[in-house]
């Protein structure tokens, strides 16, 4: 939770209060009513990304995304500092709920581990993995310039930024991460590499990029499956020139 993205060019004390407020919201977001969360989101986007596009970039049925954009749009009327102040103000009432209060509410006995699906509802950790997953290339560049070694970050499931980018099929991000010497054969806790991800999700362009960067086509995961093994016929066509001769 400490990899929060820094906000530059803002008066320090306000920024620190803001970062603290972001933490409060991350910890207590389950207690915060939907409308307030959306307002907080709009302010957060305004602070992080500047002004919202003037036209709704989402489809009409993406109600949630549209609502979020509206909130961002509204917050765009504020200056960055004003947005931060408002964010701090809004989050203040949840301060008392953070940490101790939540832990206190847990029932006795063992806690079930989070199942994989529930990861969708976690408050986001705003690190390189996160920005690779959402395809935010400018934040990725910013973080990498600040700390090139963060390209080797692994999250709690052992996944690297490169794996997230390969999973989503973001070729441009894959290229940037490889420029920063991301390890192509790093594996997650299931033994899968970025190439496994690109093969399962069938992105021929990403597969090609990874293989050119030296990704191992035969790297077996913990179930004994290699990228070649799981590749569809289309993907195998891409891989073909890179197969070693004894196949």
């Amino acid at each position: 939770m400490n990899e929060t993205i820094a906000i530059h060019d803002v008066e320090v004390s306000l920024e620190e209060k803001y970062l603290e407020a972001v933490h409060i919201v991350e910890e207590t977001y389950k207690e915060i009513p939907e409308e307030e969360l959306i307002e907080l989101y709009g302010l957060y986007k305004r602070i992080k990304d500047g002004e919202a596009p003037s036209k709704n970039p989402y489809y009409f049925y993406q109600r949630k995304e549209t609502t979020k954009w509206k909130s961002w749009r509204q917050a765009s009327n504020l200056s960055k500092e004003e947005a931060m102040s408002k964010y701090i103000l809004l989050s203040a009432k949840y301060k008392s709920m953070s940490k101790e209060a939540i832990i206190g509410n847990r029932p006795l006995g063992f806690e079930l581990p989070d199942c994989e699906d529930s990861s969708t509802s976690q408050a986001p950790v705003l690190d390189l993995c996160y920005f690779s997953a959402i395809g935010d290339i400018s934040s990725i560049r910013y973080l990498l310039e600040k700390d090139p070694s963060s390209v080797h970050l692994k999250d709690e499931s052992g996944m690297t930024p490169l794996m997230y980018a390969a999973d989503r099929g973001y070729l441009e991000i894959v290229v940037v991460l490889l420029e920063y010497e991301a390890s192509v054969d790093a594996v997650d806790r299931e033994g899968q590499s970025a190439l496994h991800y690109a093969c399962i999700c069938e992105y021929p362009d990403v597969v090609l990029q990874l293989v050119k960067a030296g990704a191992d086509i035969y790297l077996e995961d913990f179930q004994g499956q290699s990228p070649w093994h799981i590749a569809s016929p289309t993907i195998r066509l891409q891989l073909h020139p890179f197969l070693s001769i004894h196949d």
Binding site: Q62, E116, T120, Y130, G169, Y197, C201
Partner: peptide, 24 residues
Amino acid sequence: PKKLIQVGFSRLGPRMTLSRTIKL
């Protein structure tokens, strides 16, 4: 799932992977 996500029918959470979703 891949197509549903690509056409904007459905959305992946930031810590969920398409790979896992496809397997699911």
